[in-house]
Simulated assay, not measured.
Amino acid sequence: MKQPVTRNGITLMQYVLLLHAAQVGTGVFSMPRQLAETSGTDGWICLLIAWAINGLVGWLMILSFRKYPDLELPDLLKHLFGKWLGKLLLLPIIAYFAYFSWITMINAMLYIRSWFLIQTPEYVTVFLFAIPSYMILVHGPRILSRYAELVFYLTMWMPLILLVPMNDARWIHLLPVLKEGWKPVMDGLGNTLYSFSGFEILPFFYPYLQKKQYAVHGMLVANTLTVLFYLFVTIVCFMFFPPDGITTLNQPLLTLMKNIEFRFLERFDMIFLALYLFVVSKAWLPFVYCSLRSVSSLIGINPNRTLVALYLGLVIFSMYLLQPTWNDAENWQKPIVNAEKIVLIVLPVALYFYVIGLERIRKWRAG
């Protein structure tokens, strides 16, 4: 769904918050447990390493696209590899973005059904948030980025709530650092990189950035916002729960929220989760856009609402057929974890060296 760049330009702040939004979803609920299972209480170090790797890959990605500032990824692939090979390379990209957004929507649906709409069928739950998703997606990158900016400002207070139970926290749980060496930290790095997924959308939204000279700065700020949020949540959970106990909790963050009580408010954890669903929604929307934008480039059609309605309709229909459970979602997420390493790291690095090599060949032929 190609959108006019001039009409859909996004500001630097919107660019930063859109990248940050694509990275933060439902994974933060279980991330402290996953880090504790592989790396113990040194799991927070995995976050810093993943932050550095993600920043380096994002920098290489932007360097590649600086030479073609007005081309989104589908158009760039056609330009670099030709029409037919470029379209062929789009197929796994379409599958990746469509599958990633589908998994994220499944997780959001499961949280809604488990906490709020227990008796509501899966497909009805998805239909409820498919309607606002459709209204945002049909308007392109500018509205997507504005929505990400709005939700960020409305929910930026939420991490501060985690300071309330800190009176019962123990710093001793974090010590000693690297108690079992670097191997557990390296073992936990794979799942941690998945938590930073989201920068894959950068090639689709970079052409709309109004001040492209600050693209690297914005990418680094977005990546830093994400790691600070993850570090804060992880360290708070590590300090509040005993090292052996946190591995028995499926979703430590939600368990922690249950310990937050106010005299004037009951079940604050449910209110927190209900508001956090806005954060989750801005995580799947960019991935849906990237998938449908690639589809429109593949089949050569103009932007229209039919693609958005068709995709959301297929998601609803899949919920009706599959009726997914938590175990299903966890099993279906495993392929995307492996694919994410290729899409987020291997492809940007390969594309960077291909663009550099192509430019040198052209200069050699010209000179």
Rank of each mutant, 00 (worst) to 15 (best):
I112C: 09
N331H: 13
Q119E: 13
M319F: 15
L73F: 14
W157F: 15
G86R: 08
I118Q: 10
Y153N: 05
V279C: 03
L358K: 14
G55F: 11
N8Q: 14
L254M: 14
Q34R: 12
F229N: 00
W102L: 12
L17W: 08
V185A: 05
R33M: 12
L90C: 07
F97G: 01
Y68T: 04
T6V: 11
R267M: 07
Y311G: 00
A108I: 10
F264S: 13
M186L: 15
F229H: 01
P303K: 13
A309T: 11
Q333S: 12
E359R: 11
P176A: 04
P32I: 06
S197D: 03
V16D: 01
K83A: 10
T155A: 13
V337T: 10
T120C: 09
F272R: 03
L48A: 13
M156R: 03
V349Y: 02
M239C: 13
A283T: 15
V233E: 03
Y123E: 11
S291W: 08
L73A: 10
L358Y: 12
A366E: 14
G188P: 02
Q23A: 04
Q213N: 14
Y99K: 03
Y289D: 13
A283V: 04
V315T: 12
K179H: 14
G218Y: 03
F287W: 14
Q213G: 12
D328L: 11
N167V: 02
M31Q: 10
W51H: 13
L277D: 06
R267V: 02
E122A: 15
L56A: 15
M257N: 09
A148K: 01
M109K: 14
L228I: 12
L18T: 11
R263G: 14
E37H: 06
L292Q: 10
P184V: 11
K183L: 13
T6W: 03
V177E: 04
L220H: 15
